[in-house]
Design a protein around this nucleic acid. Sequence first.
DNA 1: GCGATTTGACCCATG
DNA 2: CCATGGGTCAAATCG
Length: 221
Amino acid sequence: MSYCYGYKFMNCPLFSGSGKMQPHEKVAVLKPVASRPFSSFWPFPKFLHDFNATCSPTITFPQETELIRPKATRLASLPGDLPTQIAATTDAGSDTMSEEVEGYAKHHTYRDHATACQAARRNGERSRLSLDGYSWRKYGQKKVKGSEFPRSYYKCTHPSCPVKRKVETTPDGQVAEIVYSGEHNHLKPGKPCPPRKPLLSTSTDAVMCDTHGIDDMTPPE
DNA sequence: GCGATTTGACCCATG
DNA sequence: CCATGGGTCAAATCG
């Protein structure tokens, strides 16, 4: 499975609709391309290794989505809880996040994930952090024309932080597309990033770190 | 009681 | 001006 990372701006096709973003806003796009192995429950362990290596803030688990369900019957075990478990692990300073994730991929089901997450919550671990290290609150979901998947809208929960992200997910919980907009005006709530690789590196890692536009992308005051 | 999520309604940009 | 569609709001609901 391959992903592409980078900036997209106001004139990109993704915003051919009624984009309310400011033209200067940078948009980071994380999108699976070409083949998408839907049959794989957890398709990108390497992705997570990359994350561990680069502390990329742009990664979100494919399970970071909500199930379509009746309004009155909330499910206790949701894939949407999964990233919080992983994030909690990261936030706790674990250096073995990837191993844990791969372990889950090999041996656990959605319900197992959610159960573990709930246990993590009970243990008082941070619950709203995504793999990108920031905390997000969902504020909307729409079925977008031209897209076969519903799009979810998230805001960074940090006070006064303008960053939003849109996540399109497949029915089986895979991420079809993630679009970040704006720049965080605060540091990640999780552990600090290790020293970044040079921006001009040919690897995607550098782009990934740069993509999200955190501290080192914020113009000096 | 609090905070997060859901989801229909609303706003607004675009053609 | 109107229709359409994307983005956001906010009440209801849940954990």
